[in-house]
Structure formats: structure tokens, C-alpha cells
Write a protein that binds this DNA or RNA. Structure first.
Lengths: 349, 349
DNA sequence: GCTTATCATGTAAGCGCTTACATTGGGCGA
DNA sequence: TCGCCCAATGTAAGCGCTTACATGATAAGC
């Protein structure tokens, strides 16, 4: 194996005549040191003479040299990226969460691979299939995407680093809300303000198996029951966490013979849709139908929406921090963070 | 990840081995062929006997083998990922664009690296610094992030594949709106509906050098001028494309001695803020102040907002397609797609 | 039957780094 | 002055793939 590599492939796709990207050998040659020294100097490793380091840095910047991350990864064993999975992307909540994550990862110089898994099929494929996320990233953040216990165990055994947002998962760190408590607070508020016939716009969807709406519903239901006004299940509609879904669900409720006088919407976006439906029916909120939302979306204040506030960007940031820790620590330790929620009373309830 | 290394070092004991990821050699050994054949079989390359291929596939699936993308990339020269840069992340427009891109790339089995560059510094660092995007992805989509002509030339020489969304860039494909035309349409509508004292909420920001607001302003201004009512520059405010910015800008305008009777807002989100400000001042739209927005945000209809519609998700999808093409085609050919806009007249103007 | 395409497969050289280990050369205590 | 230790540097073996090229076997051509 004493062969000089001089036989660069010609570029497979592009036409000739391009400046070749400098590689570590070029830098080493130009600086008159070995590649090992270049590697060390560039990464601020110890045992490099200051003068050498300076020279290497100077040469590198002159050649506009940047280490090829792919090669570093292969050799170094870590990819410097984390994968983030969300069910969908263009929704207020997920965009905010991802923004929070991104900010933290950027500071740590970690790249973010984004995946939307919008169905159970996609989920399975993502976790197992050829696109297997690991190998691509050092860790995974799953935002409201289910991880079965079996999967969690398997990944744990493989040494995977995972953080889940929205639901707890065995073996891994998580960050959640006290969903039941939050929903209970909404229930209590509606009861306190005199309502007894109360509807719910949930976020259930056939495509996903969200845990979150289930828990919110349970908490809401339990509290209503505890307060002596059990939930009438005929007043529950799913809005799939979307504006239109909320509108449609509300329309259905309004057109019942005996519509609810108050509705708990599991997201503000659905609540906006519901408010629109109310307006279209020439009704008003809270006079005709009170609405409590969930999220405290930036726009909630414009609608005067009473809602359960969660600090979404903070959740993202915490997820980012948890994942950074999970990537570093050698002894796996898990932490379950529960972030607070707060009922913000505005006009609609 | 971390543990792999230590374990690799041990002799290949047959005992545990439970969490060692299979590699191509394992598959080759188990299938009784060479790694080259495994590689070919797994990638559906020609010159593999059907029986061999089947055997390899069977073994691979049994061992839950998935090729290490990092290694493939290093060896194969392409990364199978594209980088997407946006100024910010948690805004309706960018989330939609990214969603559109993601959908297209997912189908092509391409990963998406997401970067938010929220300042000129970040921009420079991203384009040049150690985090240099190339090497990490085969191509780049820049969404409303500037690329100077010098940078464009440099990247072109380096053989980079770039697609820009929001503004044209020399050497690379792009997808834009007829910004000036769209803004002109808004101007015309306001003049047509009898306004002459017209304000503007722009999206300028000190952090970015957006081209988009500049062009919209130029188009708007030119049209007003052409119609005989030149823009009064004292009626221009920047809302930084944010809800709060729009609200603040509108407040300032309303508190002028002689406020405008109509305002063109360069985004719907700013328009929402503006409408809120109007309401807070106990005024109404359009009676007291007419508003025309830009985007046709999902919520625009709830506010009865008259606005310039652009098909954002389509833009993302087209960007995705352009970038896929740019990655494949050997002879670089650029295409400049201009997507249509449409003035949607609702209640506010 | 013998040469020659053709296909299936194997061999091994990288891809551009990281890092364990080897080597060198002072500084310094005795 | 000698030897030791350690910081500074070099050497080279991978990391897990892809792929050009070599090899072998089989079918086809005359």
C-alpha cells in the first residue's frame, strides 16, 4: 500500500475546468506539515505548537479550505447532525418547535435534518426503511411522532440517542406538557363561567396516532366529570388540528339541535376556524358560544381568544438542549421535562 | 455512534454482537459473495444474476442492513441531501415554502438540511465559514436569502448547484413572483377604490437585505406615480414582515396628523397586525383605513383581508423540482420561473 | 473446436478525513 | 554531560462504502 494517489476521477457529472476544492493534503503540503498536524490544528486539539497552528490556519484560510464533513464523519464516527421529525411542517406549532430546536443546534454547530412523516406508513419507513435516520444523524428528535415501546427498546439497544417531544417514551428523554392538567384547567374555566353543555374540537386524525389529543381529552373529560357535568360525547368533533377542520367541526356542532354553549378546541388554529364558523352563523363568542383554545398562537390575541398557553419555542429549545446532552454523555441518562401551561383568559370565554 | 468504536476494536467474537450494526462485509460474507456484488445488488445495478440479487436482498433484510450513507457519500461523491436556507423559520411563508420543498424531495429520497440565517453575519458564515453548506449537501435552495453576484460567480465556478427563491441570481435557476406587477395591482386597486393618500408597510429589516420588499415598493410606487398620485414617503413604515411590526407600523401611521386612508402591507401577517391596530384605535377597515395584504395566508379569509395571493406551496414544490434537476443534469442549464399572483378582493379594500 | 464477445463476479484502490502509535528533539534534573 | 520525559510531529491504518479494472465462465460465431 505505498501508492501515491494521483488518479483523481474526472468529475462524473460536471464538465471540466472547475477549480478543485482544496483538501487536507493540499493544506498540509502548503503549510509544510503532515495531514495529521493540519487536522489537529484545525480542530484546536492540543499538542500543536502555536506557530504551527497559526501557519496552518493561515494557509487553510488562504486556500478557502473547509474540511469535508462527510469524510470527517466517516473517520470520526459522528455526523454532527441531528434529525428532527415532525408530522407536518407548515403549522404554527411545529414551525415554532423546530425554530426553537434550530436555534440551539446552530449554536452548537450541529446541522438539522428535517423530516415530515405524515402517515403511519411514512413513520414506519422512516424508522426502519432504507432511509433509516440513524447513520444519518447522531440523534433524533421526534416531535409528536409516536415511538412504540418495542421500537424504543430496539433503538435503545442500538445505542440510539432520541428525544421525544409531546409524549414520554421509555429509555429516552422527553419533554411534555401536563396535558391532562392543562385540559382540566380549560374545563374548570368553562364550568366556572357557567357552562354545562360543552363541546370539544379534538385533534385526532386517522393518519397519525397522536397521544396528545387523547390525553387532553381524558383530562378534560375527567375534570368535567369531577365537576359534575360529564362530557356528552356527541359534542366531540375532530378538527385534525387544522383551521378548516376546526371550522367544519364547529359548523357541525352549531347545526345540532341543541348545540353546546362552549367549546374547548385543542389548538388555537382550530379555534380560529371555529370562531369563523360562529361568525358565519351570525353568532358571537362568547355570548352565543364560548371558546377556549390551546397554544397561545401569536394570533390568539387578535381574536381575543381565551386559551391555554404553552411556551412552544422554549419547548423546542429544551429539546435541543436535551439532545445535545444525549449526544455527549456516555452514560445514558434520561430526563423527563414537563413544561408549564397557563390559562390565558381573554374575550372568548 | 460513540460505542461502536470501542466495540469494533474487540476481536470479532461470535458471542454477543447484538448491537453491532451489520456492515456490507457482513452481508457479503453471509451471502457468500463479495462486497462489490452486495453493493451492486442493493442498488439495482446491472450485471447481477437474479438469483444472486435475491439472495443478497434476503440476507440484507435479515440482518437489517442499511448502507451507511456517510460512507456511500464519501465513496460515491454525492450526499443525497440538499440544504435549504431561510431567514427565519417560524413564519407562515417560510414554513409553507419548506413544506413544499420537503414534499418533493421526500419523493426523490433526498434529505433536507435546514438552516436559518437570520443576519448578514450568519449569511456570510453560512456561505463561507466552516459550516460551508456544500460538502454537506449536493445542492442549495436559498429562500429569500441574498446571494451577491460575486458569490454567485464563485459558486458557479465551483460547480455548485443552487436554486434561489424570491429573487433571480445569475448562473442559477430561480423562482420568483412578478413582484412589481403584483404590487402595482395592489396600487391600482386602491386608486380605483378612490384612495389617494396611501401608506405602505414594508418588510425591510436591518438584519437582512431582502430584495423582495424593495421590488414591491418600487412596483407600488411606480404604479401610484403612473396613476397620478405619487407615493408620499412619509407614509412608509417597516414592519419587518412580522405581526407586531405591522401593528406598530400601523399605529404610527394612524397617529399621524393626517393618516393614510389606505395601506398596502407587504405581508398578510403585518396586515393582521395592522387590522388589530385599527381596531384598537376604534376604527374600522375598510371604512376608516383600507388594507391590502400580500400572501393570502390561510387566515386572510377570516379577517376578510383583501390581498395579493401567491401560491406558496407551489413555489416550494417548483423549487424542489428545479433543484432535483440541477442535481442531475450535467450540462448546467438555468431556468427562471415566475409564478403568477392574483389580487383577491375581500372586505378590507 | 477455437476464438470472441458478454455477462457475472471478484479485487483492490481510493474517497478525505481521524487517531493510535511511532519518532524526534529539546529542556532539565542529577 | 547523560538520560529521561514530554511536547510536537509524522506515519499509516482504518471508517464503510463505490467503482475501475481484472478474471472467469458461458454462449455465440465461423
Amino acid at each position: 500500500m505505498r501508492e501515491m494517489k494521483d488518479q483523481r476521477r474526472d468529475a462524473p457529472t460536471t464538465t471540466a475546468g472547475q477549480d478543485k476544492r482544496a483538501n487536507i493534503e493540499d493544506v498540509a503540503a502548503a503549510a509544510g506539515v503532515s495531514v495529521a498536524t493540519v487536522s489537529r490544528a484545525l480542530r484546536d486539539l492540543p499538542n500543536v505548537a502555536p506557530s504551527t497552528r497559526d501557519r496552518v490556519l493561515a494557509v487553510a484560510s488562504e486556500l478557502a479550505y473547509v474540511a469535508n464533513p462527510t469524510a470527517s464523519r466517516l473517520a470520526g464516527g459522528r455526523t454532527g447532525t441531528v434529525a428532527v421529525v415532525v408530522p407536518v411542517f407548515d403549522s404554527w406549532y411545529f414551525a415554532k418547535v423546530v425554530a426553537g430546536i434550530e436555534a440551539v443546534l446552530k449554536d452548537a454547530d450541529i446541522d438539522l435534518l428535517l423530516y415530515a412523516v405524515d402517515s403511519e406508513d411514512a413513520r414506519k419507513k422512516f424508522l426502519a426503511g432504507r432511509g433509516a435516520w440513524w447513520q444519518r444523524g447522531d440523534a433524533l428528535i421526534m416531535v409528536d411522532v409516536r415511538l412504540t415501546e418495542a421500537e424504543a427498546n430496539r433503538f435503545d439497544q442500538l445505542g440510539a440517542r432520541i428525544v421525544t417531544v409531546g409524549c414520554e417514551t421509555p429509555n429516552f428523554s422527553s419533554i411534555t406538557l401536563d396535558e391532562k392538567g392543562a385540559a382540566a384547567a380549560a374545563a374548570r374555566h368553562l364550568i366556572d363561567t357557567g357552562h354545562t353543555r360543552i363541546g370539544v374540537l379534538t385533534g385526532h386524525s386517522k393518519a397519525h396516532e397522536f397521544r396528545v389529543p387523547v390525553m387532553r381529552l381524558e383530562g378534560f373529560q375527567a375534570e368535567l366529570e369531577a365537576l359534575g357535568h360529564p362530557l356528552d360525547s356527541s359534542l366531540v368533533r375532530s378538527g385534525g388540528f387544522s383551521l378548516d377542520g376546526g371550522r367544519d367541526g364547529m359548523v357541525e356542532l352549531l347545526e345540532l339541535e341543541n348545540p353546546p354553549t362552549a367549546v374547548f378546541s385543542m389548538s388555537d388554529e382550530m379555534a380560529f376556524g371555529a370562531l369563523d364558523a360562529i361568525k358565519s352563523h351570525n353568532l358571537r363568542s362568547p355570548e352565543d358560544v364560548a371558546i377556549v383554545g390551546f397554544d397561545d398562537n401569536d394570533l390568539a390575541t387578535l381574536f381575543g381568544l381565551t386559551t391555554v398557553r404553552q411556551k412552544v419555542e422554549t419547548i423546542g429549545a429544551i429539546a435541543g438542549r436535551l439532545v445535545l446532552r444525549a449526544m455527549q454523555e456516555s452514560d445514558r441518562m434520561t430526563e423527563h421535562v414537563v413544561t408549564p401551561t397557563e390559562l390565558i383568559v381573554r374575550a372568548t370565554a
